[in-house]
């Protein structure tokens, strides 16, 4: 799992079937100093994260397994909202 921050949301009315009903959020990956690193991703949400929340997100095959319907094209899924972390 990696750490990121929610900076917005993305609305797609036309998308893969498996993504219907799945909120898409704009996620900025963070580095060890909790600063922006890399480009923002679009991640599927499973924990009702809001803009500004620091979150845990999973990549790879596990991102798809985090959703109800396992056969989905997600490669980044938010799996937790961070309350506290070292240096945060």
């Amino acid at each position: 799992m990696r750490i990121g921050q929610i900076i917005g949301s993305v609305v797609c009315s036309n998308k893969a079937d498996a993504l219907y009903g799945v909120p898409l959020l704009l996620l900025q990956p963070l580095d060890e100093a909790y600063q922006e690193t890399g480009i923002p991703l679009v991640a599927c949400d499973t924990v009702q994260a809001g803009t500004g929340d620091m979150v845990l997100y999973e990549g790879g095959r596990e991102a798809a397994l985090a959703l109800e319907n396992w056969f989905n094209p997600s490669d980044a899924t938010i799996v937790g909202i961070i309350d506290k972390a070292e240096g945060l």
């Binding site: 060890e32 499973t46 937790g80 961070i82 309350d83 506290k84 972390a85």
Partner: peptide, 14 residues
């Protein structure tokens, strides 16, 4: 290990 991470709202398997 840098330190603990606390997350109360998270998916069931965690």
């Amino acid at each position: 290990v840098l330190g603990p991470v606390v997350s109360t709202v998270k998916i069931r398997s965690l």
